[in-house]
Amino acid sequence: MAGSGVPDYYAVLGVSRGASVSEIRTAYLKLAMKWHPDKRGKKEADDGEATARFQEIQQAYKVLSDPAKRAMYDAGLYDPSADDKDEDAKLTNDFLGELVAMMDNY
């Protein structure tokens, strides 16, 4: 699967590795509706498990809904910690992502 320490985003969303963009989005919407703290009743702020689960779903969707990030992830090259932090790492990620996506098309 993907690089060490990175969770299996396909399993998080419950979709297959070949899932289409629309399948990924549908799975994400259902899970978001289920796990977002606003949908967990009154004690939402204390519901640590739901929050952690929602964040995991969110991260999985962020990567799998972006073709470049998904390609990087599939190739085991995706580095989540580089994603928001410094612009250089982000650019490298984006550039590599596009490259991998291009190679995939051949």
Binding site: A32, M33, H36, D38, K39, G41, K42, E44, Q58
Partner: peptide
């Protein structure tokens, strides 16, 4: 209504803002 946990049988509160 949503954050107060209200649900609507017709589904018009099956909404979520992220």
């Amino acid at each position: 209504a949503i954050a107060s946990g209200v649900t609507d049988p017709e589904g018009s509160l099956d909404l979520l803002t992220i």
